[in-house]
Simulated scan of single mutants.
Amino acid sequence: MSTPLTSPSAVSLTGRDLHLSFGDHKVLHGVDIHVAAGTTTTVIGPSGSGKSTLLRVLNRLHEPQQGDILVDGRSVLKDNPDVLRRRIGMVFQQFNLFPHKTVAQNVALAPQKLRGLAKDEAYALALAQLDAVGLRHKADVRPSTLSGGQQQRVAIARALAMTPEIMFFDEATSALDPELVKGVLGLMAELSQEGMTMIVVTHEMGYARDVSDNVVFMDEGRVVETGTPQKVFEAAESERLRTFLSQVL
Rank of each mutant, 00 (worst) to 15 (best):
M1S: 15
S2P: 05
T3A: 12
P4E: 14
H19Y: 11
L20Q: 13
K26A: 15
V27E: 12
A36P: 14
I44T: 14
G45M: 07
P46R: 11
G48K: 02
S49N: 12
L54T: 03
N59E: 07
H62S: 09
V76L: 00
N80Q: 10
N80S: 07
N80Y: 07
P81Y: 09
R85P: 13
F92S: 09
Q94I: 05
Q94W: 09
F95S: 07
N96F: 05
T102P: 10
N106K: 10
V107I: 12
V107H: 02
K113I: 07
K113L: 07
K119D: 04
D120V: 04
A124H: 09
D131T: 02
A139D: 05
D140Y: 03
Q152S: 01
V154L: 01
A157M: 03
A157V: 01
M162P: 02
P164H: 05
F169Y: 13
D177L: 10
P178K: 11
V184I: 15
L187F: 15
S192Q: 10
M196L: 13
V201H: 12
D213C: 07
N214T: 14
V224S: 09
V224Y: 10
T228V: 09
K231D: 07
F233M: 06
E237W: 03
E239A: 08
L241W: 04
R242K: 03
L249I: 01
